[in-house]
């Protein structure tokens, strides 16, 4: 048999093997995801009831519901969104549209990318030192939201910048050639076109904020506080920290309470992503290039 035939046969074998190997890896990942989600759904659903969602915890958190915890999480994430979205999106716009192409810009961009890799407990310690102690916000919703703002800022900035870069420069040129200022071109043409990407990045960043435990643990989340926070300077309860408490700090919690709490957190984050996904696909159908 000629050399060329042998090489062709080898290539076919490698092709077949690689297809199986890569496919197996995907199967493994999907399997793990199904297992995790399956466990949360199967063990969590029995705990879900209107009473569970809308009442306070009782009997040392071994009974009752998680209403203050849900509300605390919502308040925390909303406050974080209010702080981080304008800041992050504006910074992303500057980097994509206005920043000069020089070494300083490159360093700034690199630093932002590195910020995304800093472990969340480090943000927690920073928040404790700066927002809780130095700025004297105390352990509070505000201190936690500011800490989560620092944590999610890199994700929001980077995804905004990326989304803006996806927009063909034709559109920018067209707007400028009509006598629009840069800001008008951005505001009227580029931002709307980039909105789906920016929303995706924002949801991703805020989902991460909603699930963080370490940074809020040291900046304001309460172990147990059955009333609702009454100002941004109050402490609050929150789903991820509550889960941690139920799983490790309180003996004999009925499993449907622990898993029910986990289910609410996962379902909340998923529902928001799904709504964003649906809106995005409607947008995509309208806008294509």
């Amino acid at each position: 048999m000629s050399d060329r035939n042998r090489r062709a046969r080898n290539a076919r074998t490698v092709e077949a093997v690689m297809k199986v190997v890569t496919g197996a890896c995907v199967a493994l990942v999907v399997g793990a995801a199904v297992l995790i989600l399956g466990k949360i759904v199967i063990s969590g659903i029995p705990g879900i009831s209107l009473e569970f969602l809308f009442s306070k915890p009782g009997m040392g958190m071994r009974a009752g519901g998680i209403f203050p915890i849900i509300v605390g999480t919502l308040m925390l994430v909303t406050l974080t969104a209010v702080l981080v979205l304008p800041l992050g999106i504006m910074a992303g716009i500057y980097l994509a549209e206005y920043a000069p192409k020089n070494i300083v810009t490159r360093i700034v961009r690199l630093s932002i990318a590195n910020m995304a890799g800093v472990p969340s407990i480090v943000y927690g310690l920073f928040g404790l030192a700066v927002f809780v102690l130095l700025m004297q916000f105390g352990k509070s919703l505000l201190a936690s939201a500011l800490t989560l703002t620092c944590l999610t800022l890199p994700v929001i900035i980077t995804s905004t910048e990326e989304a803006l870069r996806q927009i063909p420069s034709d559109l920018r040129q067209a707007a400028l050639a009509l006598g629009a200022t840069r800001w008008r071109a951005i505001y009227k043409v580029i931002l709307p076109a980039a909105a789906p990407g920016i929303v995706t990045g924002s949801i991703l960043g805020l989902s991460r904020a909603a699930g963080e435990t370490a940074p809020i643990l040291v900046t304001g989340a309460a172990f147990f506080l059955p009333r609702l926070p009454d100002s941004v300077f109050s402490q609050y309860m929150s789903l991820p920290y509550h889960l941690y408490v139920l799983a490790t700090q309180v003996p004999n919690v009925p499993p449907e309470i622990t898993w029910g709490t986990a289910f609410v957190l996962v379902a909340g984050v998923s529902i928001v992503s799904m709504i964003a996904g649906a809106w995005r696909s409607v947008q995509r159908r309208k806008v294509k290039w």
Partner: peptide, 14 residues
């Protein structure tokens, strides 16, 4: 505003 431009590739806004 006094000197308009039309580009090579049609580039209507979305």
């Amino acid at each position: 505003m006094r000197v308009g431009q039309v580009f090579q590739r049609p580039n209507p806004f979305p």
